[in-house]
Amino acid sequence: MSDFLEVRNLTMRFGGLTAVDSLSFKVEHGSIHGLIGPNGAGKTTTFNMISGFYTPTEGQILLRGEDISGLKMHEVARRGVVRTFQHSTLFAELTVLENALVGTHMPFRPNIFAAIIGWDKEDRRGAEARAREALEFFGLLHLSDERAGDLSHGHQRALGMAVAYASHPDVILLDEPFTGMNPEETKHMMGLMRRLKEDGITILLVEHDMQAIMGLCDTITCMSFGKFLAEGGPTEIRNHPAVIEAYLGGARHVA
């Protein structure tokens, strides 16, 4: 197992505020890696830097040894790192199937000339098959023709992941995927993530649901006020004094 994705001295400053302060960690290929920390710790900002949404103030992001910091989001995506967003960010006006079809943009790159002449039938069929496959995986196929904006909150979160999954990513960055899901849905979704891992997809996960984090992750990185705090397996992190401290006597959260 090699160091697949590595973050080195990553720093993000917004004016006077240092949201992420010289953060370093490594994500192993094929693992589920958790990123935890209290609200405002800088987890989403870290995701935004890895995915290319923000350019880091300092530091590097290495993917298979290549420095990808400062690349645009679509350039990062084309290297196999695909993200979801913290809030249900979807194409609300489009149907569920169309949402998933946008997700197939990378494996089935649209070609305008072929589209006009009608020579892209193969690609369109392939894209639709992939989109349906992604929807089926996340249990959304029966909702294909619904407007994405009309879905329940839990289904919207699942659709966000289906859009990412449709692109055949190597790494998925999931920002609080279980928000808005009931315990039943959460459990089901955890099962799906284990299956993604079996498929060789690396998952980097931000989540507040500690039970889900502890149940899923191989490695957990904990951060607080933008800084690295601790790293280790679930048991280690659960019993780590600094982590418990960071959650402010929150042993009950970390339990």
């Binding site: 989001m73 995506a77 979801t84 979807l90 194409f91 489009l94 946008v102 943009h105 990378m106 859009v163």
Partner: peptide, 17 residues
């Protein structure tokens, strides 16, 4: 479809490559 995607949610479109 990609034009529509760019219109409705450019961040997500970009994250899809």
């Amino acid at each position: 479809l990609t034009f529509h995607a760019v219109h409705w949610q450019d961040k997500l479109a970009q994250a899809s490559g």
